[in-house]
């Protein structure tokens, strides 16, 4: 499928916070509680539309365990966006955010857009991190913040698309040199100003093409 731009995303965060489930909810619109734990990295892709332009998101879903950090770091290269995920029911996953962010800052390009996601907000009765704390951390570190649930799909679509919108705006503002692919953006073959297609900021069907 042709696209105006391709954005590379990376999903990071502690093991078991629901990275793979967020990806699956976004690409396949389903929640699968039983799936194999991620070893190394898994891939997903989906087309969305922003400003009437088809944009392909290629999403890298990484393994969360500490031991694999040295490998995970090599995946940051050329990512335009990152979803930094914690689990609102497990305090320690929130406590580790700073270390993840440090990794991202160190190994990704400086203009990478980072979205902070407090996942499992459907389990608010077991909440261990307040919304405000998440919001505060995001503010202090210049991140976009959202609580979401891969199970109910709440805010999942929004999280990925809002990140894409931010990246898109950076392109419009000339922050990126899109001819340089190290920014995680590829210019596709679709005519950038083609009319028609979906309404702005809405997503197209979950065509998962690679």
């Amino acid at each position: 499928m042709s696209y105006a731009y391709l954005f590379k995303y990376i999903i990071i965060g502690d093991t078991g916070v629901g990275k793979s489930c967020l990806l699956l909810q976004f690409t396949d619109k389903r929640f699968q509680p039983v799936h194999d734990l991620t070893i190394g990295v898994e891939f997903g892709a989906r087309m969305i539309t922003i400003d009437n332009k088809p944009i392909k998101l290629q999403i890298w879903d990484t393994a969360g365990q500490e031991s694999f950090r040295s490998i995970t770091r090599s995946y940051y290269r050329g990512a335009a966006g990152a979803l930094l995920v914690y689990d609102i029911t497990r305090r320690e996953t929130f406590n580790h955010l700073a270390s993840w962010l440090e990794d991202a800052r160190q190994h990704a390009n400086a203009n990478m857009t980072v979205m902070l996601i407090g996942n499992k907000c459907d389990l608010s009765h077991r909440r261990a991190v307040s919304y405000e704390e998440g919001e505060q951390f995001a503010k202090e570190n210049g991140l976009v913040f959202m609580e979401a649930s891969a199970k109910t799909a709440q805010n999942v679509e929004e999280a990925f698309i809002k990140t894409a919108g931010t990246i898109y705006k950076k392109i419009q503002d000339g922050v990126f040199d899109v001819s340089n692919e190290s920014y995680g953006i590829k210019v596709g073959y679709a005519v950038p100003n083609a009319s028609g297609g979906g309404a702005g900021s809405s997503s197209q069907g979950g065509g998962c093409c690679s």
Binding site: T15, G16, V34, H35, D36, L37, Q65, E92
Partner: peptide, 17 residues
């Protein structure tokens, strides 16, 4: 606790098919 938590999370994500 951490070790047990990690293992608890992983065994339910191992070859469940």
């Amino acid at each position: 606790r951490e070790r047990k938590g990690l293992i608890d999370k992983d065994v339910v994500r191992t070859d469940r098919a």
